[in-house]
């Protein structure tokens, strides 16, 4: 490929994706969708990790991606379990209805 995409394009794209994730977390009420938006935010960050890794000629970014991915997997497992228990006790996954400290 003759034309290489400059680093800043990747960073802007990453910022856009991250912001979409933030918007989703703030706007949506469904706990499952909020969870997905957190994944979008992580993806945005991952993109800039990999872009930096490419442009700095360093593997650290890719290693970091690996750890982010592992943490995301762990987080999803626990988070979905929490959502499942919430759904069982309230029959809803609307975060506005989860406002009691004692179930």
């Amino acid at each position: 490929m003759s034309f290489t995409v400059p680093l800043s394009w990747y960073l802007v794209l990453s910022a856009i994706v991250f912001s979409i994730g933030v918007a989703g977390v703030l706007l949506r009420r469904n706990a499952l969708v909020i969870f997905m938006c957190i994944e979008i935010m992580l993806s945005g960050v991952n993109l800039s990790f990999i872009a930096f890794s490419r442009f700095l000629h360093s593997m650290s970014g890719q290693i970091f991606f690996f750890f982010v991915m592992t943490v995301a997997a762990a987080e999803v497992a626990v988070g979905l379990a929490i959502i499942l228990t919430i759904f069982r006790s309230r029959e809803s996954v609307d975060v506005d209805e989860v406002n009691l400290l004692r179930g």
């Binding site: 680093l7 960073l11 802007v12 990453s14 442009f55 700095l56 360093s58 593997m59 650290s60």
Partner: peptide, 14 residues
């Protein structure tokens, strides 16, 4: 992010 990005020292993995 969009401006001039100054990169640090480059690593070994070109």
């Amino acid at each position: 992010v969009a401006g001039e990005v100054r990169l640090g020292p480059q690593g070994e993995f070109t």
